[in-house]
Design a protein around this nucleic acid. Structure first.
Length: 888
DNA sequence: CTCGTCACG
DNA sequence: ACGTACGTGACGAGT
């Protein structure tokens, strides 16, 4: 029986390009999209055994859709050159595969595919359409299944008409109506503004088609009716644009798609040119060519692992087998690990995966397993062991012996892709499929733990994926020089963080509540002040209403707009200050409500009733620069700059009577790092002589002596220093200092004349990023910047600033992380009772018993300053008090 | 569920 | 000529 596979070439190339990490061959040619495309083809051929195969491409720029609507696809960003240069390679590759390619002037790939599926429907041929574009769902039929890629290209969702019905409760034909209503920003199809997927679905479930929705506009209500009425034309046109044309006059016949498999030799030649070494091995060539002993492809293969659901009577068998365990997976659901629900743990050996439900683990029968988890000599590789450690800790188990973490490794290998799931990672590494958690549990309100059997199979697959991924990633870490960063810094830190979080910090709710009372009173009076100035009452918190009052009613000049209306941010308001007395009141009101909602009410909600503590969760795999972030609550953005907010810090107190809060922060760590990596003599000299760096900068930029630097000059110099660290632009500096762009440009030029080494660093690092495709920190932390070569000015400029900033911010992050690991060692070595509680990027916060104050006051800054040796000294300032507020 | 705003380094 | 400072997380409003 025939089986056709029809592939949307442009769409898949696009998906592959954005899904794969940057990849170039030795000639510097980008090959990541080609690689993704190739793995997908290999997998399809292997799994589907097609008799016919074809890849369709869009031809030329103008299609018949532009007739009548010039803006079609107008809003779409230009294809980056890194991708467009790969199309010829993809076409060459298809030839090597022996797969037919169709394209036809004036038509898009989906029209060609639409026409072929019409033929397939008529002939009754089983057909699989592969695309990244959900529009294709309109082609689904009894014969035709649509495979839509998701996060990557090796992963697809398959849609039969039933599956379309399940997902959207629509027929395939109604997909066209869906797009007619909601539009598609990427194709510049307007739809009805303000109608997104949710609304469009609701309308279609009620009325069926765009035409019926329009006909029944009368029975809609309020805003919705207005919108539908106003945009009838757009809706009809959008529907037309979204309709795939299925009568393309094909020049190539169906016979030309016939496919009988590829010739390994031809393909291996193509792979060799592209330098796809791992794929070469998979081709399974007869001896003499590449192929190792174990070169056969695994991709798409079903997991061969046996799932063993452990019950009380099976625990002994598991315990006997513990020596063989290569990977553990601790499954805890929920966003906040401090409130996580521990479901089960899975343990993978080479041949099976044991799954132990949490209640068994926590029961008496689970004792031996618990001891194993707590055994430092029992080595464990896992996924997100930071969360696992916390979830176990709250259940009385002290996880020890972690030697590898797949999530942490994935973060180091590409920190820009923060959402690394086992589902995505196994697809990327061509390992057996692991379903996405979302597909197993559902998401949001629909979250539900599935039946035990389904759950256990899922966990077994995840544990198995960890076992397979760990050695692959370990090699990559080694190859990219991040071995030590991983094993000696990030991995130990993960456990230290878990300890800090579990410990928590005490926050006095009475102090906060009292502050809340005071703020409440001030809010009322500043609110009334605003009303008085405005001559009316309105919701000051609504940007829209505030904009109407300021700009329509009071007639103040419009400084800046957002895409939805007037901008009213602090920057704009400050510029409006001379025009009207209402402005300071609004600013004050904003400040107060922010304090009230986020820091008074928000923080109160996070205090545990039983202990009076808050337990933040530091995320180690989010920030692309290597910094930590903090959640639930965020304790890295507690107010300090303004006195009114700073008072919040009075509520952060030691958790034991007679103890103190001690804090130490690095002085100018980023500029010191810059001095080191740029090697600039003047900057180094300034730090070696412990000068005030902003004053020194003012002297050099304004060409005056130290005693002639006034506070305004110093302020401006400080802004220049910030700009330098961020990857300076004259516009950014001019905004910040409220000066003209020209003046800002002069400051910058002056700066670079004075600090020539810094200019050279900035130039060099951008050039290096362009050459390597990434930048690194002092400890070899890496960040890829593919957009550094983009032709789009904005994207490229952004990448250039990132290239300048990341080594600075990232090295600073490396250093404080080092200090944390050292500090942790010192506390243990010296058997101190003091505890490290928080990290705020350049600051560490401890709680310290009185009799250790003298030691800690010396030790902490010493460890921080000595974390690493640079060409300039590092300095940390320390202070302590009865609460966090007092440490200044 | 997205946007604008604002808290921190 | 282009249109911006780097990195985060939380909240209220409005649809």
């Amino acid at each position: 029986m025939d089986k056709w596979i029809l592939i949307d070439g442009n769409s898949i190339a696009n998906r592959a390009f954005y899904a794969m990490p940057p990849l170039t061959n030795s000639a510097g040619l980008h090959t990541n999209a080609v690689y993704g495309f190739t793995t997908m083809l290999l997998r399809l051929i292997e799994e589907e055994q097609p008799t016919h195969m074809m890849v369709a491409f869009d031809a030329g720029k103008i299609t018949f859709r532009h007739e009548g609507y010039e803006d079609y696809k107008g809003g779409r960003a230009k294809t980056p050159s890194e991708l467009s240069e790969q199309f010829p390679l993809i076409k060459e590759l298809l030839k090597a595969f022996g797969i037919a390619q169709y394209e036809l002037g004036g038509f898009e790939a989906d029209d060609i595919i639409g026409t072929l599926t019409r033929i397939a429907d008529e002939k009754g041929v089983q057909t699989l359409v592969v695309s990244g574009d959900k529009d294709m769902l309109q082609l689904a039929s009894n014969q035709v299944t649509i495979a839509i890629t998701r996060k990557g290209v090796s992963e697809v969702d398959r849609f039969t008409p039933e599956a379309v019905g399940e997902k959207y409760n629509l027929t395939p034909e109604q997909i066209i109506d869906l797009k007619g209503l909601m539009g598609d920003a990427s194709d510049n199809i307007p739809g009805i503004p303000g109608v997104g997927e949710k609304t469009a679905l609701k309308l279609l479930h009620e009325y069926g088609t765009v035409e019926e929705v329009l006909a029944n506009a009368g029975s809609l209500k309020g805003k919705m009716k207005e919108k539908v009425d106003q945009h009838r034309e757009e809706a009809l046109m959008s529907k037309k644009l979204a309709t795939i044309f299925r009568e393309v006059p094909l020049e190539q016949g169906v016979e030309e798609m016939a496919y009988s498999g590829y010739q390994p030799y031809q393909l291996s030649e193509a792979f060799r040119k592209l330098e796809f070494k791992s794929l070469l091995e998979r081709l399974d060539l007869p001896s003499g060519s590449a192929s190792g002993s174990d070169g056969a492809g695994e991709e798409g293969q079903e997991s061969a692992i046996e799932t063993v659901s452990v019950e009380a009577d099976g625990i002994q068998a598991l315990v006997d087998d513990l020596k063989q365990v290569k990977a553990v997976l601790i499954e805890a659901t929920g966003e906040n690990p401090h409130h996580a629900d521990l479901l089960a743990i899975a343990l993978a050996t080479d041949t099976k995966a044991y799954v132990v439900p949490a209640d068994l683990l926590l029961s008496e029968q689970g004792l031996l397993l618990k001891e194993w988890l707590e055994d430092e000599q029992a080595f464990k590789q896992g996924y997100d062991m930071h969360k696992a450690e916390l979830a176990l800790a709250w259940n009385g188990i002290k996880l020890k012996g972690t030697t590898f973490d797949v999530q942490l490794a994935a973060y180091l290998l590409d920190p820009s892709d923060s959402g690394q799931t086992l589902n995505g990672l196994s697809a990327r590494y061509s390992l057996p499929h692991v379903p996405a958690d979302e597909d197993v549990y559902g998401k949001g309100a629909k979250f539900k733990v599935p039946d035990q059997e389904v759950l256990h199979v899922h966990l077994a697959r995840k544990a198995e994926a960890v076992r397979r991924l760990a050695p692959l990633q370990a090699r990559e870490l080694e190859e990219s020089g991040m071995h030590r960063l991983f094993y000696e810094l990030e991995l130990p830190l993960s456990s230290i963080l878990a300890g800090m979080e579990k410990q928590g910090i005490e926050v006095r709710s009475d102090t906060i509540a009292q502050l809340g009372q005071e703020i409440e009173g001030k809010i009322t009076s500043s609110m009334n002040e605003v009303y008085r100035y405005a001559g009316m009452e309105f919701n000051i918190g609504s940007t829209r209403q505030l904009g109407e009052v300021l700009f329509d009613k009071l007639g103040l000049p419009v400084v800046k707009k957002t895409k939805t209306g007037y901008s009213t941010d602090a920057d704009v308001l400050e510029r409006l200050e001379p025009y009207h007395g209402i402005i300071p009141s609004i600013l004050h009101y904003r400040q107060l409500t922010k304090l009230q909602s986020t820091y008074v009410e928000g923080l109160l909600k996070e205090i545990r009733k039983d202990t009076g503590k808050v337990h933040t969760y530091f995320r180690q795999t989010i920030a692309a620069t290597g910094r930590l972030s903090s959640q639930f609550p965020n304790l890295q953005n507690i107010p300090i700059r303004l006195e009114e907010g700073r008072k919040i810090r009075k509520a952060f107190v030691p958790s034991e009577p007679g103890w103190f809060i001690l804090a130490a922060d690095y002085s100018q760590i980023e500029l010191r790092v810059l001095a080191h990596i740029s090697g600039d003599e003047g900057l180094k000299d300034a730090f070696i002589h412990n000068m005030d760096i902003h004053t020194k900068t003012a002297m050099d930029v304004f060409g005056v002596a130290a005693d002639q630097v006034d506070s305004n000059m110093r302020r401006q110099a400080k802004a220049v220093n910030f700009g330098i660290v961020y990857g300076i632009s004259d516009f950014g500096l001019s905004q910040n200092l409220n000066i003209t762009r020209k003046e800002a440009a002069q400051f910058i030029e002056q700066y670079f004349v004075a600090f020539k080494g810094v200019r050279k660093y900035m130039d060099d690092i951008v050039a290096q990023a362009r050459e390597d495709g990434y930048v690194t920190t002092l400890l070899e932390r890496r960040r890829y910047l593919p957009e550094i070569k983009a032709s789009n000015f904005n994207l490229r400029s952004f990448a250039e600033r990132t290239a300048m900033n990341t080594p600075i911010q990232g090295t600073a992050a490396d250093i404080i992380k080092l200090a944390m690991v050292r500090m942790n060692e010192k506390l243990a070595e010296q058997k101190l009772r003091s505890r490290m509680l928080l990290q705020v990027h350049d600051e560490l916060v401890f709680e310290v018993p009185e009799d250790e104050l003298a030691i800690m006051e010396k030790l902490v800054p010493e460890v921080m300053a000595g974390a690493i040796e640079l060409d300039v000294p590092l300095r940390a300032d320390v202070s302590y008090g009865a609460n966090w507020y007092e440490t200044k």
